[in-house]
Amino acid sequence: MKFLNPYAEIEMHKNHLPHWQQGEAFVFATWRLADSIPQSRLSEWMELRTAWLRHHQQPWDEETEQQYHKRFSRKLDEWLDEGCGACVLKVPSTAAIVANALLHFDRERYELESYVVMPNHVHVLFRPLEKHKLEDIIKSWKGFTAREINKVLGTRGTLWQSDYWDRLIRNERHLFKCREYIRKNPIKAKLCEGQFLLFEKEHG
């Protein structure tokens, strides 16, 4: 398995948020529907996060990463799990579009470890393969699924947020914790069977 090497070069790509890739190292990525968090909440969160990041340059050690998630990721997850917005991914046919897109190039462009399609967001744990770029993989997922879901719903316009969140996986323990988080997210959000889609790679 390939994890973050803190002593090796890390490739950075920046949209609204910074994104980090180190070859084929595992990545935990999250993106959400555009209407899933009220803009007033998100603007304040982004302002506080930007100020904190100025003083905490990545890559982080384990303690700094825990501080970040306690301050910022936890709050974001709480808001997403409240189920704000139209939650169009709660519909099985639209959730299946996302799940099928994630599986389509598995073991060709990337290797999936686990994912969950929630009513208004998606978590994916995977590693890019060969020279495939993180931003290209996620752009492909979001672009294809937005077009197909809009067709199914008979709608137009923006479906997903313009960016996504990601973090590199440090070691096997970190990988296990992310798998566990994905597995428990539907329970934490008090979802019923049929309101989410969960995938976990089987290890022999």
Results as ranks from 00 to 15, higher is better:
N5E: 03
N5T: 08
P6F: 12
E9A: 12
E11G: 01
M12F: 03
M12P: 00
N15Y: 10
Q22Y: 09
G23K: 13
G23Y: 09
G23S: 05
V27T: 09
S36P: 07
Q39D: 08
Q39H: 12
S43K: 15
E47C: 04
L48T: 10
R49M: 12
R49P: 00
T50M: 02
L53H: 11
H56M: 00
H56K: 11
Q58H: 07
W60Q: 03
W60I: 04
W60L: 09
E62T: 15
T64A: 08
Q66N: 11
K70S: 08
K70G: 01
S73V: 03
R74P: 00
L76W: 06
E78H: 15
E82S: 05
G85V: 07
C87Q: 14
L89D: 02
K90V: 07
V91H: 12
A96W: 09
A99Y: 10
H104T: 11
F105A: 07
R107W: 05
Y110I: 02
E111I: 06
E113T: 08
E113D: 07
S114V: 07
M118G: 07
P119N: 09
N120V: 12
V124P: 02
R127A: 04
P128V: 13
H132E: 07
L134P: 06
D136T: 15
D136M: 09
K139C: 02
W141P: 01
K142I: 08
V152N: 01
G154R: 14
G157A: 06
Q161E: 05
S162Q: 11
D163H: 14
Y164M: 01
Y164P: 00
D166W: 09
R167P: 00
R167I: 04
I169F: 03
L175F: 15
C178G: 05
E180L: 13
E180Q: 15
K184D: 11
I187W: 07
K190Y: 13
L191Q: 13
Q195N: 12
F199T: 08
E200I: 08
H203W: 13
